[in-house]
Design a protein around this nucleic acid. Structure first.
Length: 678
RNA sequence: UGGUCUAUGGUGUAACUGGCAACACGUCUGAUUUUGGUUCAGAAGAGUCUAGGUUCGAGCCCUAGUAGACCAACCA
């Protein structure tokens, strides 16, 4: 159970308020309403976790409802994928519903609307209707068919339903208000003719309800109490309510729509249309490509339901535009996998290491802890022998003092095995290292309890025995886009930011033999490298592992920083930061002034004086009116004024008043500066 | 240019009916460590878009700006 001190998001506040106002808790009901026209993504996870999370929190039913009102875009494949993803996330829906289940009811209500003279049949082209709609700033004009007699509309609607007309020839429109400032209220379309096979109703219908008509009424039919959707539907709310008003039985629950901001993730895109484009243009291998932000992509990549739910929880729900840093998602998966993943060893970029004093032909079985984070996780066996692979990056002939890995003459621990010392290298004619020759300390075997085994050495390396290693393909992934928000550029399409190196395939990695029995469900930590999971492309005899996410790597970070520092200054492109105006700088610095003291204060005041050299009196004058409590800004203004006066600015009434007010202020600094100018 | 919504450290969210701006990620130290992981201890970083106002007191209320988002599909 959650603690009562936990902070609530604004949706939860609304529900708590409703409850406090007397809404019965047992009538709470939610729904998640996807359109089956694409796969679910991490943005949907926000909505799924919100709705189903609310259901769990209040013990309320949550329906899964497919908004399947447009047969030309929707497919059974998507229905199946969506159900699979939600179930995988660990949520259980109360009912599996379809808007198409309500087509008969919706149609009956539409007929009633016509009879009530609240709807009419229009027979203009979509262009004509669009033109009459007006713009957000100018009112629309009425359709010439707006006052068609009720009986005539009724007959035409019936004939539409019977398939007597071609697609696009007639529509049913609500009769609301062509002058409404809300475009959605300008006689919106309720029904249109579509001749396409529907994944559930087949060819029964050739007229299909529009989203607004179907959605709110579906909520009503299911007696959903809180209909939560994303912000772009805010403007639809008025129509949602209008439709409800037409059919509402006052004895029944009236659903209410509330809107929250959709969740964006940095370095990716989050719209089904764009994701579909990536699939269709073969930028990625499919909806479940591990680089995709889809639930199925993340699953294939190795993300767990726990991590995704945790992410949704941490990211929260609010109403402002956002781009959540992907590092938060990565934190969530690392946190989960650190607790649960089995530790193994694998070498991705091998170099041969020979232990010269280890008997040829000998091998032994060592034991590797399955998970140091979990006390009873046990161990598994790993073979050791004279010839091993280690990572090429784990050896340098001369490493330097910050290099904890293997270098000539230095000792290092082989994880769960022995301490070794590098003695020499064998190179080919290009100078490339072929073999590293070392000696080992036979007394130092891990866990043997000997004094030598307890010895502290700086570094520990992972390794595999060449004779025993199994081969596997390993796929490493980088962000799919190079830009933090690839679809936020007006002049460039998101595809221009695709990262050409988002996939790196290692054809032949060497893994400890334990991994031969890996299953798709298993999660591994390749020690010192990251988390990996088996890809479904794996076949008998050919293992393929996906890298879910790397371990945090402070060493790599440190290296990158050093490299950046060593680069000549001209090569580091200074971001084209628009130069702030001097007056703004002064305001900025001034704000913080009252929090500073000593040297910092001195520095700040001096930089204000410097910036003041570049400003005009006209720019400064408005600051004289700064509220009394904003002392910092007033000090800054006083300092700047001092500079201007020194430069020959004439005193005037405004200046005198400002100086006088400063002299009378409680703040010592302000007082002192004002005195100087008096 | 009409309507609607939003604005809090680098990022994402909190802050109850006005009462010392909090948490997480990220960043940076240091300790521990047979994973340069984990864990632990700590630090820096915002005075809440701007300017007024109400108030003993404003991130929160009021006014006026500014910036961004959404709205004119027979899509959802």
């Amino acid at each position: 159970m959650k603690e009562s001190t936990e902070s609530l998001n604004f949706i939860e506040h609304i529900i708590e308020e409703d409850l406090a106002a007397g809404f019965p808790k047992e009538k709470l009901r939610f729904r998640f309403p996807p359109e089956p026209n694409g796969y679910l993504h991490i943005g949907h996870a926000a909505s799924i976790c919100l709705n189903f999370g609310l259901g769990e929190k209040y013990q309320a039913p949550v329906n899964l409802r497919f908004d399947d009102t447009n047969p030309s875009k929707e497919e059974q494949e998507y229905v199946d994928a969506i159900k699979r993803d939600i179930a995988w996330l660990g949520f259980r829906w109360a009912n599996e519903c379809y808007a198409s289940d309500y087509f008969d009811q919706l149609h009956a209500w539409a007929v009633q609307l016509i009879k009530d003279d609240k709807a009419y049949i229009d027979q203009q082209t979509s262009e004509q209707i669009a033109a009459q709609k007006g713009t957000p700033t100018t009112p629309g004009t009425a359709s010439p068919y707006r006052d068609r007699p009720v009986q005539e509309s009724l007959e035409l609607f019936e004939r539409m339903k019977n398939g007597e007309f071609p697609a696009g020839s007639y529509v049913l429109r609500a009769k609301i208000d062509m002058a409404s400032p809300n475009m959605h209220m300008r006689d919106p379309i309720l029904y249109r003719i579509i001749n396409a096979h529907h994944h559930r109703t087949g060819s029964k219908w050739c007229i299909y309800p529009m989203y607004d008509w179907a959605h709110g009424e579906s909520d009503y039919i299911e007696q959903v109490s809180h209909s939560l959707c994303t912000l772009e539907f805010k403007a639809h709310r008025e129509l949602y309510d209008w439709y409800l008003d037409q059919i509402l039985d006052p004895n029944k629950l009236r659903p209410k729509q509330r809107e929250f901001a959709r969740r964006n993730l940095s370095y990716t895109v989050m719209s089904k249309r764009k994701l579909l484009e990536l699939v269709q243009k073969k930028v990625v291998a499919g909806w479940d490509d591990p680089r995709m932000p889809t639930i199925s992509g993340l699953r294939r990549r190795g993300y767990t339901p726990t991590s995704i739910r945790k992410f949704s929880d941490l990211a929260g729900i609010a109403k402002r535009d956002n781009v959540t840093d992907v590092s938060l998602l990565e934190f969530c998966i690392r946190e989960d996998l650190n607790q649960t993943a089995t530790r193994v060893m694998g070498v991705l970029n091998p170099v041969k290491l020979v232990i010269t004093n280890y008997p040829e032909g000998k091998s032994e079985i060592l034991h590797l802890e399955n998970n140091p984070e979990e006390a009873n996780s046990g161990t598994h066996e790993v073979p050791f022998s004279r010839e091993l692979y280690i990572e090429r990056e784990d050896f340098k002939e001369d490493g330097g003092k910050n290099y904890f890995r293997l270098s000539l003459g230095n000792e290092v621990r082989l994880k769960s095995a022995y301490i070794i010392k590098a003695e020499s290298v064998v190179k080919d004619s290009f100078g490339e290292i072929q073999e590293i020759h070392c000696t080992y300390d036979p007394e130092s075997r891990s866990g043997s309890g000997t004094e030598a085994s307890e010895r502290k050495v700086k570094g520990t390396l992972h390794w595999v025995s060449i004779a025993h290693a199994i081969k596997a393909e390993v796929r490493e992934y980088d962000r799919l886009f190079l830009d933090e928000a690839p679809d936020s550029h007006e002049e460039k399409g998101f595809l221009e930011f695709v990262n050409p190196n988002s996939l790196n395939v290692i054809q032949e990695a060497y893994l400890e033999p334990f991994l031969a029995n890996a299953t798709l469900e298993d999660k591994y930590q390749f020690q010192r490298l990251g988390y990996f999971t088996l890809d479904p492309d794996s076949k008998d005899g050919k293992l393929i592992f996906n890298k879910t996410v790397g371990l945090k790597d402070t060493w790599a970070k440190q290296n990158n920083q050093n490299q950046a520092q060593n680069q000549p200054k001209a090569a580091t492109p200074t971001p084209a930061q628009p130069q702030k105006k001097a007056i703004n700088e002064i305001q900025q610095i001034g704000k913080k002034l009252t929090n500073l003291s000593g040297e910092k204060l001195e520095t700040a005041m001096n930089s204000i004086r410097e910036f003041a050299e570049e400003i005009s009196y006209e720019e400064l004058e408005p600051l004289f009116g700064t509220a009394v409590k904003k002392t910092g800004t007033r000090i800054a203004a006083m300092l700047a004024l001092g500079v201007l006066l020194k430069k020959g600015q004439e005193k005037n009434a405004g200046i005198d008043t400002f100086i006088q007010s400063g002299r009378e202020d409680e703040n010592e600094i302000l007082k002192a500066e004002a005195e100087k100018l008096n």
